[in-house]
Structure formats: C-alpha cells, structure tokens
Design a protein around this nucleic acid. Structure first.
Length: 428
RNA sequence: GCCCUCGUAGUCUAAUGGUCAGGACACGGCCCUUUCAAGGCUGCGAUAGGAGUCCGAUUCUCCUCGAGGGCACCA
C-alpha cells in the first residue's frame, strides 16, 4: 500500500519505514503507550473493568432485541466494589475495559458537513480495551492522533458515526479534540460500494491496467472536489496549492471509468516517449520482452512518439507500436482490409512502387511533407482515397500516425517492402 | 430496527433568494483535417416528490421517497 501511495506521487511527513519525531509507528510497538493511558483512565475512575463474559453480554443483547429496545450495556460492572474487583483480579478473571460515558449530547463541528449532533442515549459505556489487553481501534486511533499532534483528521464518511465515541476518549484524557472533516465515499456505477465485482479497486490494479498516476490522481480529486473555475487538469503542485476543504462536495460520487480513461488518454499524449518507454519496461516487463525483443531502442522511442496520442492505456502502445517496430505488417481490421483491396489502392501503390526512387528518404520533414502533398498532382484521386491506402500499407490500419511521420520513422527498406506487399494484396 | 450523512442531466460537478441553471465525460451533428485522436462550434439532457416561508426558491424550513454509511471485546 505504501508503494501504491508513492507511485501516485504522494508523500508524507513521517511514519513507518520513514521515521520521525513521534514514533514508533507500528501499532504493536505502541502497545505500552496505549496501556499507559488505559491505566490512567482506570486510575481516575473514568473507565472501569468489566468482567462480564461474552455469553452474558450476548444474552443481554438478545433480550434487548426481543423487547425491541436499543441495546446498551447494562452497567453491571460499572460500580463494583473495590473488594470484588480485587477478588476477581486475584482469581484471574479476564476483563475488558469500558469507558464511562457522560449523559450528554455530542456535537461534531465537521469541516465539510457542518454541525452534526448525536444524542446522548445513543451511547453506552463502550469497550476501549479487550480482554487480551489490546485496545480497540477507536481508542488506539485517538491516542495516536493526539500524541502525534494531529490538527486535522480528514477521512472517509464511514467514520463519522464513530467520531462521537472518539470525542469521549479525547475528553476523558483531556486531549485537545482535533478538527474533523469527513469525505464522502466513492461508489460503483450501481451505487454500491466499490468492490472486486466492479473490477479494479486498488491503486495497484489501475497501475497494472496502464493508467498513469497523474491521470488517476487528477481524476480522483475531481470526484469530490472542484476548483473555483472550470479547469480540469491539475498537476500535483497545483493541487497542493489550490486544494481547499471548502471545495469538497458532500455527496458520494460514482466512479466513471470512461472519464478516467479519457483523462488518461490526454495525459498519455502529453507524456514524453522516454517516460512511457520506462513504464513499459518496468510495469509490463513480460509484454515488453515479447514485443520489443531485439528492437533498437531509438526505433521504439520513435514508434511510441508516433502512436502515444492514440493510446487509451499504456499497454495499448504494444499494439500500436507493433506495426512500426516489426519488419512485417498485418492489416488489423476489416475496414482497413477493405481499403487495402480497393482499386484506388492498386492505383496509388503501383505508382509508389514504380516511383520508389523518388521517395525522399532521410530528408527533413518539410521536404517529405511537400513530396506527400505533391502526390495529389501525380495520382488522380481525392485526398481521402489517395492517402488511406498508403497508411494501410505502411501502418496496417486506416487509423494511425500521419503519413509524413510514417515515411520518416520507418526504415527505407521496410517502406519499400511494405508497399510491395500491399500492392500484392491490392492486385489479388 | 435505531442513528448519521447525502440528493442539480446517464456520470463528475458549478452557481444564485430574482437575466437562457454554467463546465466536463458519454452520446448525436457540423467544422478543421491525408485517417484516428486532438481542437473549434453545436445538439440532447438536470435542480427527486410534496407542502410551507417569501413579491419570488434549485437555494431557507418541514415531510415523503431514494441512495450511502454507522450501530462489535473489526479496522
């Protein structure tokens, strides 16, 4: 998970494996800390030992349900005499620790949701440490946040209902209560919780599907936050500078993979080919080995540069670059094939094969471009009819890089061969 | 069941107690163009429903409905 966060380009001030002034950061290593505060609460009688067994509690719960009452702990152990406690301890009876909850409403001042009020009767003396001595999450998280001097707790909405319990703990320990901000959840298209059923759910999944971290971050941030203007593209630096809690929306957002893919496409087009090559090599090593075995790196870079604007996700580049990098070419689809076997194709290609000597190999772009333009004067066809077969011949598909770019990127021998092959197809 | 949160087009969102409710994705059309993409223009399309306050409500209040979350000796 830390690796995924790093991949996204996110950093943090301190923590596990990184160090900092408020360690240790591993929960098991923090156990003595938790124990200390549990002991303190017990000492001050703000918490008490509960010797009730699981069975007893279970029974209480069933009874409450049968009588259609809300279940709250009955307080059986809330006022045990010192003698009884001493005796129970001497007998080695296991106990959990419960916090005494005052009968008062709790108001949370949430930075996103405003005032949220919880009624006193919703709460009972809840357990803060189990029989095995390990504190429950609500307790540990309060200790951690307080000791680490956390000023703002920003987390998912699912924690909102637990916040009052945490506030009780802050108060019992006389800690400052931090500011809270509860962000809405991301939903699957059917408004259910995001799950495997929906496909990729972890950051790592998206990485393996070929989404760029900057695209994912950019998309995700817009899922619950909006700037003051209509901009949609943000770098990490811009986000750090411009993000505000005020711009966060309150409602849950449905994850729209189409828009993510669109955004990824835009980022791919702008990304330097060398960066994309790195990603292909590192994240898609297996495919890379198969697709680019023995291919000159400069050719790969050229191919990526030509085709990146057509890719939706990173691995699309394998398919798109194949027809540039490989010595042979295959016609990708029916529509392209139809063009390849058209009479126009025969006309154009036979002209080019016959006049192959005139192709300005190795010239600058302006020269090649002028020559390509001039083909219109030599072959009596409308531009669309004229150029489509050339692209199919050179690239294997009707959609792809500009003809000029193809002439410049491909090896002269490859071009001659492909033109001849395509002519053969057209003449069948 | 109880509690909490949310509710603007299919989706993400902006805005205001009062001009045509703005932008983006998706979808359709047009332009540009040697194709696709990109870009430009354009079309379709929304304030969940019902009361109330108000001269006027999408905005404020209440109810209903809907969606999500929480109710552990899980995290």
């Amino acid at each position: 998970m830390l690796a995924d966060i790093r991949w996204l380009g996110l950093d943090w001030d301190e923590g596990f494996l990184k160090g900092g002034a408020f360690g240790p950061y591993r929960e098991t290593e923090r156990k003595p800390l938790y124990d200390r505060y549990i002991a303190q609460l017990l000492d001050e009688d703000k918490a008490y030992r509960c010797f009730c067994t699981r069975e007893e509690l279970e029974e209480e719960r069933h009874k409450a349900e049968a009588e259609h009452r809300i279940y709250r702990y009955g307080g059986k152990c809330a006022h045990l005499s010192a003698d009884v406690i001493t005796q129970n301890l001497a007998e080695g009876k296991p106990y959990a620790v419960r916090l005494r909850i005052p009968e008062q409403d709790v108001i949370i001042h949430d930075l996103i949701r405003g005032e949220v009020r919880f009624k006193a009767e919703e709460f009972d003396d809840f357990v803060i440490a189990r029989q095995n001595g390990i504190p429950i999450y609500n307790f540990a998280t309060v200790i951690d946040d307080a000791l680490m001097q956390i000023s703002h707790v920003i987390r998912a909405e699912e924690h909102l209902s637990n916040t009052p319990r945490q506030v009780f703990i802050y108060r019992a320990l006389a800690f400052d209560v931090p500011q809270f901000a509860h962000v809405s959840l991301i939903l699957a298209p059917d408004h259910s919780k995001l799950s495997k059923r929906f496909g990729a759910v972890s950051v790592g999944d998206y990485r393996m599907e070929g989404y760029l971290p900057e695209a994912l971050v950019n998309y995700l941030v817009l899922l619950g936050w909006s700037p003051k203007d209509d901009r949609e593209f943000f770098t990490m630096d811009e986000l750090v500078k411009e993000f505000t809690l005020e711009g966060v929306s309150k409602s849950g957002a449905v994850f729209d993979k189409k828009k993510l893919t669109w955004m990824n496409h835009m980022y791919l087009g702008r990304k330097p080919a060398s960066d994309l090559l790195e990603i292909l090599r590192e994240d898609f090593a297996d495919q890379y080995a198969v697709s680019f075995d023995g291919v000159d790196e400069s050719l790969i870079l050229k191919a990526i540069e030509l085709t990146k604007g057509n890719a939706q996700v990173v691995p699309d580049l394998f398919r798109l670059t194949a027809n540039i990098v490989r010595s042979d070419v295959t016609i990708a689809d029916e529509a392209s094939r139809a063009i390849a076997v058209s009479p126009e194709a025969q006309l154009v290609l036979s002209y080019l094969v016959e006049h192959a000597g005139e192709i300005p190999f190795g010239q600058d772009e302006a020269t090649v471009s002028a020559w390509v333009e001039d083909l219109r004067n030599r072959v009596p066809l409308a531009p669309r009819k004229l150029y489509a077969p050339i692209r199919v011949a050179l690239f294997g598909a009707k959609d792809g890089p500009e003809i000029v770019k193809l002439f410049m990127a491909l090896d002269p021998d490859v071009i001659r061969t492909r033109l001849k092959q395509a002519l053969a197809v057209a003449s069948q």
